[in-house]
Design a binder for these strands. Structure first.
Lengths: 93, 93
DNA sequence: ATATTAGTTAAGTATAAACTTAAGCATTGA
DNA sequence: TCAATGCTTAAGTTTATACTTAACTAATAT
């Protein structure tokens, strides 16, 4: 028996609290990495890697502006989460 | 810098596709482990461990009936997911 | 009593995830 | 042109996760 090959999906992407916090911050509008990273007590590469994960599932897009890289929220993939959880809402109502 | 101590949360619990599938199955009503495990190509202990994770975050409850253990869906913790994702819905509308 | 069934617990393993520091690459500014 | 800034990429480490098989516990059936 083999485990499925690891590839990022949306559920996994949002399972990390730092990544959720990044998404939350991006709701204020697109921002460069340094600014996004500001409240987190971890290195910039760590944030960069989290952004990479979010990018891979399509939750963020980026745009180079000078030496900055502006990241922008791309919420569409969250529809999958929303749809999934919606099927359970009847159960707590 | 230290990482937060690992403790299961709802986002993490639903990040695993097998656990989501278990929850989906439980929507049909409470079921014993063997029956729940039936469609999955993995050992019973593996399923048992997934159920343990779901139990720890409160997504399932269990009841002994004879030598069976009936697991039941407990969807309330999914409210956290629903609430979180709801904050993003404005962005795709 | 003993065997069977239903499930958990224990112990071990492989892979993945989340970090770190160091090095590299553009872009801007002096 | 050289230094600084903004960020990524590379490489390595630690911890967590998802499994496995083997052993155990409890309840039922023979």
């Amino acid at each position: 028996m083999s485990r499925p090959t690891a590839s990022v999906d949306t559920f996994q992407a949002i399972s990390d609290p730092t990544r959720r916090a990044i998404l939350d911050r991006l709701r204020a509008g697109e921002q460069p990495v340094k600014q996004l990273a500001e409240p987190f007590e971890m290195s910039l590469p760590a944030i960069s890697q989290h952004l990479q994960v979010l990018y891979e599932v399509g939750l963020v897009s980026q745009q180079r502006v000078g030496r900055q890289r502006l990241y922008r929220l791309n919420p569409e993939p969250l529809k999958e989460i929303s749809d999934w959880v919606a099927d359970y809402e009847q159960f707590w109502q």
